[in-house]
Write a protein that binds this DNA or RNA. Sequence first.
RNA 1: GCCGGCGUAGCUCAGUGGCAGAGCAGCUGAUUCGUAAUCAGCAGGUCCGGGGUUCAAGUCCCCGCGCCGGCUCCA
Length: 660
Amino acid sequence: MGNTGRLRACGSVLDRFSLPWVAILPSTLAHRPNPTRSERTGAPPVPIIQEDDRNEPLYRMRHSLAHVMAQAVKKLYPGTLLGFGPPVANGFYYDFLFSEDAEISEDDLARIQKEMRKIIDEHQEFSREDLSAQDALERIRAMQEPHKLEYAQELLQQHDSLSFYTNGPFVDMCEGPHVENTVELPKDGFKLDSLAGAYWRGDENNVMLTRIYGLAFPTRKELKEKLRQIEEAKQRDHRKLGRELGIFIISDEVGKGLPLWLPNGAIIRHELEKLAYETEFRYGYLPVATPHITKEKLYWTSGHLPLYEKVMYPPLRMYEDAEEGGAAAESGEGEPEKYYLKPMNCPHHHMIYAAQPRSYRDLPLRLAEYGSCYRFERSGQLQGLTRVRGMCMNDAHLYVTPEQLLEELKAVMELHREYYELFGFDNYFMRLSLWDPEDPKRAEKYFDQPEAWEFSQKIVQQALEELGLWYKLSVGDAAFYGPKIDVQFRTVLGREFTLSTNQLDFAQPARFGLKYVDRDGTEKTPYCIHRAPLSTHERFIGFLLEHYGGAFPTWLAPVQVVVIPIGENQLAYASKIRDTLRSSLVRTETDDSDASMGKKIRTNVTRKVPILLVVGGREAEAGTVTVRRYGIKEQRSMSLEAFVDAVAEEIRGRQHVTEW
RNA sequence: GCCGGCGUAGCUCAGUGGCAGAGCAGCUGAUUCGUAAUCAGCAGGUCCGGGGUUCAAGUCCCCGCGCCGGCUCCA
């Protein structure tokens, strides 16, 4: 049973990224045991996190600090109720329900922190008790902790007993483990750093608790190092870099979540589209283009309307004869036509498939488009470029026969691998989302065809395993039309998010009546694979900004080369170099400002231009350039011709040059 | 959407209820420089918006909007 059957009273969040892929824990562990990869597939057992991992000193220390914080809060704010309080990646948190007259803000954190230090100084011992179901419930009732009681009752459906930890006057239902004595806790290695709302059990229908986050490390030095890292990460925040580098802006007047792409950002988009077009051409895709809006009926056919409506913009309503001041528009009688901004591209692509009869000889048919989509995300969710309302997706739909499904899925995953290698991504993991046959609401959440789910889930898993890709299973997170392979990344600021996504769709083709004539002359329904390896321009470029810290490889850099004449005598030579490079399609500028050379270098280094060509009298005379690459101290001189060839090759090959 | 915080020049940020400020960026002039900041001057403001308290509000109160951190969801 390993870890999967054990539930923790305090909850648990481990840092999945700090562990090898094989050691990934199901994220839903705290709520419901997930089958492990080996249990699902019968494959050899996979090493997953064992009980021992929770005996790590760091884990115990953070966990115990959470309890100390809860004790401090209950002392300073009597009547406060408890939620969960687990250790997390860089520290711990605890959720509280403060009594109504206790207003708490970030200013109060220092007070709580001070109280925590006092508790640590009391050298309180942690002791564990295991109580039978009945004793446990009695204990919790006596504690008057309604949230703990609710969770205990749930736990007792699977467990015969529950454990409690006591330190000083504080008792918590908790599986542990903890340190033995508060003396082991680092008085100056922790810091309460933020206050946030969090729904009880993560469900917005529940009460909102107040979560206090703390950072915690064994020593003050390590804490300070983490704080420094956090500061450094802020310098890589794509919102900051996006503004500084002129990539995008988001204007209140246009609307939240609707980025405006500045020239530098539009160039990056264009380069990504070129990359996608070339790569997809090699993989046998065909380009298509579709409009941004569509009539309502399409989304009834696809099934989006009942299931997806809450993230769609409300419909535009119009009368076809409105322009002529027609009778219907005038009187408002009759039904107006409803148009929706498209939240996805698939229905449009299905219409292209359906536009002509298809034979098995036409399959696989791979239709690709960078398609614009609009989703009405809730305002609190919007996040720079990584979470927006208007986006442009690296989309494609592959229509395949059942026999082709496995190979096509594998090709799609290979495509991901190729892209990620090009960009140098390695900090990600795959998540395979399945339906949940036990979900009481499954008929509302999914197309309810058990055999189709079983078949398509099996094929997807087979594809991942034949390619040797590790993945995490996530039951209940499938798309409504089929299983999903998401690729999870983490931003520099530590937020996990989905970059690429792929789905196997067994439902929509049938709903759209898509057919192909098979070898034997009968009509059959194809499967559809949805895939978006380069995500959306918004999310992808947001991530790239952080990944590269704004210092793009030459092929992606909005300005690839800046020529810096040392004095005004070299202006003509600088212009000649610029024109030569431009005729080789290298994005080049000259810096002809009258600033000092040092200032010009500084300015263009700040812009993170990959290559600066410094030219003075020597270069002009010899017909050479002195090359100064971003992030590389050493400079090189070479003939202009040699440089043009080298940089053109570097761009054509989409190379990453990090050293000479 | 909900909980907490924040909103002053293009950017980063000072500003004790009593004249709206600095650095960088911009513009003008001087300077023409050998690998990360030459000098001087000028200009730049609905202090997020609306209402209120006050002799007086960037500052205090209320409402709205936006942003940031989280919850949840997701490309």
